[in-house]
Design a protein around this nucleic acid. Structure first.
Length: 712
DNA sequence: GACCTGCTGCGGGCTG
């Protein structure tokens, strides 16, 4: 049925491929895309044929005799563009149209060829679109001024993040160059029913965007294993089991850090060479050289008859093609259910095959969290995507980009331009005018004969290579003490003179930071002050923590837990047995001993961090162990209650003032958001409040919390 | 106790 709707060259392609039938998402997408001009989000699991679901009908429908590029394909990764290039070129083989790659590593000559004769399909990254607007605005209109379709791949990777807001703004700017409405198709992993609204927002037209979901999941066989870790290194028993489990398959192992990746890859190879196993053990993460990473991906994809084991970070979470994987192992819990979904999806890619998943844990809290994530995965829960109503930082970035693009415009033109962009629809015209005026004061913009142009300071920003992206990258700094190297740490806003850092199990005070040489000089810290909590730790959603509490408070058994894992869960259950928890939402265990308190909040990381911040405003320093969702209070229960009573009475204005104080005291704080530092303080405070904290969550919990002491 | 993502234009030197 759907097949009949396709054009003859595309039908020929399908016949040549000898496809017996179309996948469900393909059949559904073909009729809708051909028969309507709605935008669509096509959501289904990895390797279900989404690319073809979008391109078969689009290629059937588009008139490639029109001037200009007709289909713009946008991808979050260069590697994905390179993969998709071959697939799309193959789809186009009976069509005689050109497919062009356009990203930082693509050939300049091919880009120039397209500029001379804009046509066909263009594959690009958001950053390259940004660069085009800034550096060659004339080219943008001739290339992208007559588009028929935009396809956004892995659209879920843009949701809830700054890069997605940048893309949303760029989509609106591209539409402005076109007379006719562009139809947009987003390709997505399953992201949870409430989150599809975010995808509609990103596409920019909520009413005309429809969602097509293929909910079929692969059957997954799961097993939990427990290996108590007493030191910083992984226990030998874990490694031996890991070896046994992966030595005769194509396996992916996901520990949660680069250091762990290296440790596992090296040690498994060592075991394998001792017992005469294969030598195909690889480590894949962002610090591994790009060419090495590509050769690993090629090995996995092309060497069909070899077994291998790739230990990796989230670099292999997205849809890069690495062929068939038999088994996925997660070492210690993922930080989110969404991440677990992506990783499970990597396994059992052959039609009708089971996914095999092993979840290892090295401590009891990680085991509990892992179990909670698995239960929520089964219930189809996925973390909700956070929507920032007023992204002032992205507005500032886009404001400079637009002024450069237009090479000058009036204040009113700029305001209208930004106001008509749905990315900024909740930011008032007054706020935009204020930001324009403040930017003139700071020399980011210049007002010249009623025309706005980029100011002297602004030129440095716009002409920098760093301008095109909205995220900052970590730069590793070498940490040394009297000539001796202690280690490498990523550069963060907190790396500055007199700050304390933790490294190699010691506390150090920073004496000097050499930005150019990427070096940090430290001395041992005498005051023993711990580093501030503001850092980037994994952020666990409150629903995961609630599930952890629920598991602890019931006595159900799980057949997929091995004996050691089940014993460990039962031990934890025994520890919490004495607390009379009835209401899982607001009853929380508390332990009082020697004038100190331990409160198990069983809530999200963001809420925990916000509680610590609010109590600090009343000179009550809390210490937090987020992996256990445990807050340690150096006070008695009575005193804690007094401060808590004050905290929940705080007004919005008072909180605002406290955030301003914090921003003044800790200038590096706003540096977590690349474009935030160019904003006036009031706007920075708004961003911090929305992005780093969850005051609503705190007030909900603290106004109703019922602290339960152990009754045994 | 984190992880990941991208990048212009120009000039100089070298190769075929």
């Amino acid at each position: 049925m759907s097949y009949q709707l396709l054009s003859e060259p595309i039908r020929k392609f399908i016949r040549n491929k000898r496809w017996e039938n179309l996948r469900p998402i393909q059949a559904a997408a073909i009729s809708r895309i051909i028969e309507t001009d709605n935008n669509y989000v096509l959501a289904s699991r990895t390797s279900s044929g989404k690319t073809e679901a979008a391109f078969l009908p689009i290629l059937s429908k588009v008139d490639f005799n029109r001037p200009g590029v007709q289909i713009l394909y946008i991808s979050p990764l260069i590697a994905l563009i390179n993969d998709q290039f071959f697939r799309i070129e193959e789809l186009c083989e009976n069509l005689e149209i050109s497919v062009t790659k356009w990203h930082g590593e693509a050939k300049k000559s091919l880009k120039n060829q397209l500029l001379k004769n804009p046509n066909g399909v263009l594959l690009i990254t958001p950053e390259s679109i940004e660069a085009m607007f800034v550096n060659a605005p004339y080219n943008v209109s001739s290339l992208l001024g007559n588009l028929h379709y935009i396809v956004i791949d892995e659209i879920h990777s843009f949701l809830g993040v700054d890069r997605g807001l940048q893309l949303m703004s760029l989509l609106s700017r591209i539409q402005r160059l076109n007379k006719e409405r562009i139809i947009t198709i987003g390709l997505s992993a399953t992201i949870g029913d409430e989150n599809y609204y975010s995808a509609k927002l990103l596409i920019g037209d909520v009413d005309r965007t429809k969602i097509l979901i293929d909910r079929t999941k692969k059957d997954t066989e799961v097993s939990f294993k427990y290996f108590k870790s007493e030191s910083v290194e992984l226990p030998l028993s874990l490694l031996k089991e890991l070896y046994k489990e992966t030595s005769v398959s194509k396996a992916l192992i996901f520990p949660n850090s680069r250091g762990r990746v290296e440790e596992i890859a090296v040690k498994l190879l060592k075991i394998s060479s001792k017992v005469g196993g294969h030598r195909n053990y690889f480590a894949h993460h962002s610090s591994v050289d790009k060419e090495i990473r590509e050769s690993i991906e090629r090995f996995a994809k092309e060497k069909e008859h070899f077994n291998f084991c790739i230990t990796c970070t989230s670099t292999l979470e997205l849809g890069i093609d690495i062929g068939t994987i038999d088994k996925v192992v997660q070492v210690d819990s993922t930080h989110s259910v969404a991440s677990l979904v992506q990783r499970v999806g990597r396994s059992g890619r052959r039609e009708g095959e089971m996914s095999l998943l092993s979840l290892y844990a090295t401590n009891e809290w990680s085991l509990l969290q892992s179990l909670a994530c698995w239960k929520l995965y089964q219930e189809d829960f996925l973390e909700p995507i956070k929507i920032i109503q007023r992204p002032y930082d992205i507005l500032f970035h886009q404001m400079l980009s637009i002024v450069k693009q237009l090479s000058g415009c009036s204040k009113k033109e700029l305001n209208d331009h930004l106001r008509s962009n749905p990315t900024f629809e909740h930011i008032s015209s007054e706020d935009i005018d204020d930001l324009i005026n403040q930017s003139i004061k700071s020399d980011y913009l210049e007002s010249f004969e009623r025309e706005l142009i980029i100011g002297v300071t602004g030129e440095f920003i716009v002409n920098s290579r760093e301008f095109y992206s909205v995220f900052s990258t970590e730069l590793n700094f070498k940490v040394t003490h009297s000539g001796k190297v202690i280690g490498n740490i990523p550069y963060s806003p907190q790396v500055k003179k007199d700050e304390n850092i933790l490294l190699a199990a010691s506390i150090w005070k920073i004496k000097d930071v050499d930005i150019k040489g990427a070096k940090i000089i430290v001395v041992p810290a005498k005051d023993g002050k711990k580093p501030k909590f503001f850092g980037r730790t994994g952020s666990i959603h409150k629903r995961v923590r609630a599930e952890m509490l629920r598991i602890l408070m019931n006595s159900e058994g799980y057949e997929y837990l091995n004996v050691e894992s089940h014993d460990e869960i039962d031990k934890l259950r025994a520890d919490f047995n004495g607390f009379n928890i009835k209401d899982f939402e607001y009853d929380r265990p508390v332990i009082e001993k020697e004038g100190k308190l331990e409160v198990y909040t069983f809530t999200g990381s963001e809420i925990n961090n916000t509680i610590v911040f609010l109590f600090k405003c009343f000179n009550c320093e809390l210490h937090i162990d987020d992996s256990k969702s445990l807050i340690e209070v150096p006070e008695t229960l009575d005193r804690f209650g007094e401060v808590l009573a004050q905290v929940i009475k705080l007004t919005q204005d008072e909180i605002h003032d406290y955030i301003i104080d914090e921003l003044k005291a800790n200038e590096g704080l706003i540096g977590f958001y690349k474009w935030g530092k160019y904003l006036p303080l009031e706007y920075q405070a708004y961003l911090l409040r929305e992005k780093m904290f969850d005051f609503e969550g705190v007030f909900d919990l603290l106004t109703k919390i019922n602290l339960c002491e152990n009754e045994i």
